[in-house]
Simulated assay, not measured.
Amino acid sequence: MSLFWRIFLLNAAVLVAATMVLLLGPVTVSTPVVLTEALVLAVGLALMLVANAALLRVGLAPLHRLGRAMATLDLLQPAPRPIATGHAGIADLIRAFNNMIDRLEAERATSTARALSAQEDERRRVARELHDEVGQSLTAVLLQLEQVARHAPAPLNAELRQVQETTRAGLDEIRRIARRLRPGVLEELGLASALKALITEVTGHTDLAVTHRLGNDLPAMDDETELVIYRVAQEGLTNAVRHARATRVELSLQRRPGEVLLRVADDGRGAADAPEGAGIRGMRERALLIGASLEVTRSPAGGTEVRLRVPAGEASAA
Rank of each mutant, 00 (worst) to 15 (best):
Q162K: 10
A240L: 07
L171E: 14
E165M: 12
L237C: 04
R179A: 15
H243Y: 10
H212P: 02
N239F: 05
Q234T: 13
I199H: 13
E173P: 08
Q234V: 15
T206G: 09
R245E: 15
T247G: 15
V232A: 04
R175W: 05
V228Y: 01
L191R: 13
L253H: 03
L160V: 13
R245Y: 14
I229G: 09
H212R: 01
L171D: 15
A240V: 10
A178F: 01
A178C: 13
T203F: 12
L171V: 11
R179H: 05
K196T: 04
R182A: 09
H212I: 00
L218A: 11
G170S: 14
G190C: 00
Q162E: 13
E224A: 02
T238R: 13
E226F: 01
S193M: 14
T225K: 00
V228K: 10
L227F: 06
G204I: 08
V163P: 05
E201W: 03
I199F: 13
Q234E: 15
M221C: 08
A233M: 07
A244M: 14
L195Y: 02
V202F: 00
R248I: 05
N216M: 11
R242S: 06
E235Q: 07
L191G: 12
A246T: 02
G204D: 02
Y230A: 00
E235G: 09
D222P: 00
L218E: 01
S193T: 14
T203S: 07
T200C: 11
E201M: 09
A209N: 01
E159P: 10
T225M: 10
E201T: 05
V228F: 04
S193Q: 12
R179Y: 02
T166R: 05
N157Q: 15
S252A: 04
R176G: 04
A158M: 07
E201F: 03
L208V: 08
L181Q: 14
H212A: 05
V210G: 10
G190H: 03
E226S: 09
V163T: 13
T211E: 14
I199V: 15
E188M: 09
T238S: 15
R248Y: 14
L253F: 12
Q234L: 13
E235A: 15
A233I: 03
V202W: 00
A209K: 04
L227R: 12
T200K: 11
S193R: 03
A244C: 11
E250H: 08
H243F: 08
N157T: 09
E250Y: 07
L198N: 02
